[in-house]
Amino acid sequence: MLLDGEDWQRVLHGFSRSAFRLETLPAYKVAGEAEEIEEFLNGNRIDPDTYASGWTDRLKAHAASGRTVQRVHIVTRPLSDYLRYEFMYYEPHAKAGEDVRILDLTDRPNPGLPNQDFWIFDDSTVVLMNYEPDGTQIDRVLVEGETGQYREWRRLAVTESVSFADFVKEHGWQ
């Protein structure tokens, strides 16, 4: 089943305990970000201590209610311009309560994770995030049936990754 609009928002924000996102691409083409990316490349940065958005507000609310939001982004170095831009937002997201993690495959083989972005909510609802090679989103598809493989991929991704803060300490990102 395709998820869009209100149906997608209900799934994305309606979880009870946990939400996990696996990101596999070096760039995502998101409407409205081109100008921000250009500004970033020209040296403009957000202040991670004062930055606020609808997403950071939701993260704080989820954390306050005991719900967890976790993300693992698979990367290789050197980071793409888009990843460097996206990383600028990971610090305030982490401060707001998201467990942001990085799995760097630059000097190691993939430990068995798919080349497929997905969300898993409350261990039972999986949504595949499908993209064109350039990062343009095609659609979101609700997975029907067994979710055990996705739970295992989540476990593997979390186990094999490091916190965003540790990745930045080791490799930097700007």
Rank of each mutant, 00 (worst) to 15 (best):
L2S: 11
L3F: 05
D7N: 13
Q9I: 13
L12D: 10
H13K: 09
F15Y: 15
F15N: 06
S18Q: 08
A19Q: 03
F20C: 10
R21T: 02
R21V: 00
T24W: 06
L25H: 05
P26V: 03
V30N: 03
G32F: 07
N44A: 14
N44E: 13
T50C: 01
A52K: 15
S53M: 05
D57N: 14
D57K: 14
R58C: 08
L59G: 04
H62G: 14
A63D: 07
A63C: 09
S65F: 01
G66I: 02
T68V: 01
V72E: 01
H73K: 11
V75R: 00
T76I: 12
R77E: 15
R84C: 02
R84E: 13
E86W: 07
E86Q: 11
Y89M: 05
P92I: 08
P92T: 13
H93I: 00
K95F: 01
A96I: 01
E98N: 04
E98D: 07
L103H: 10
L103F: 08
D104N: 15
L105T: 11
R108Q: 07
P109Q: 10
N110Q: 04
G112K: 07
N115H: 05
Q116Y: 02
D117M: 01
I120M: 11
F121Q: 04
D123S: 15
S124I: 03
T125N: 13
T125F: 05
T125S: 07
V126F: 07
V127Q: 07
L128G: 05
L128W: 13
M129R: 14
Y131W: 07
Y131T: 10
G135P: 12
T136F: 04
D139T: 15
V141W: 04
V141L: 11
G145E: 12
Q149E: 15
R155Q: 15
L156P: 10
A157L: 08
T159H: 14
V162P: 09
D166G: 01
D166C: 04
D166V: 08
H171I: 12
H171D: 11
W173Q: 13
